[in-house]
Amino acid sequence: MTEEIIIAGFGGQGVLSMGKILAYSGIMQDEEVSWMPSYGPEMRGGTANVMVILSSERISSPYLKVFDTAIILNQQSLDKFQDSVKPGGVLLYDPNGITIHPTRTDIEIFQIEGNKLAVDMGNAKISNMIVLGAFLKIKPIVKLDNVIAGLKKSLPDRYHHLIPLNREAITKGMNNLKPFLVAEMILK
């Protein structure tokens, strides 16, 4: 198994930490992992992105041009990375703030209302975990138990009381995933 993922959005949306939790979850089930962030001026306000690879084999390049999955949280990132999804790959995005929707017909596209659902849950910061849940519904590459184990390992003790909330958010994401059909959008 090898899954090559790009996660992109605004700095502060939890892009890098979503990638980190995914990487930690991979370690919990003995996968090889790599996490390659953009660390430039982007993280100070513009777009942030991270390339995450989980594989049962040794990972060669941590830096890639095309991905099995793109997880997208803002318009700029959608514009930039829509074409980086391999044919037959997956594009998952949060429609919040998106005015120009994806147009590719050779990939699978899904929506998750991460931001809206997180606000409904009373904590906007949890939106990245809702999105992660949606991704794991599409591609169950790591078990939920391993995500929780990864969270325990990556979070300092003082945040461990938030783990049940994170689990709830992941489950919410799994249950609220919507396929997005480009054709329907064009007909509208």
Partner: peptide
């Protein structure tokens, strides 16, 4: 370099 310094791996 910046890649090896900034990336995370096992």
């Amino acid at each position: 370099d910046g890649i090896i310094g900034q990336m995370m791996e096992k």
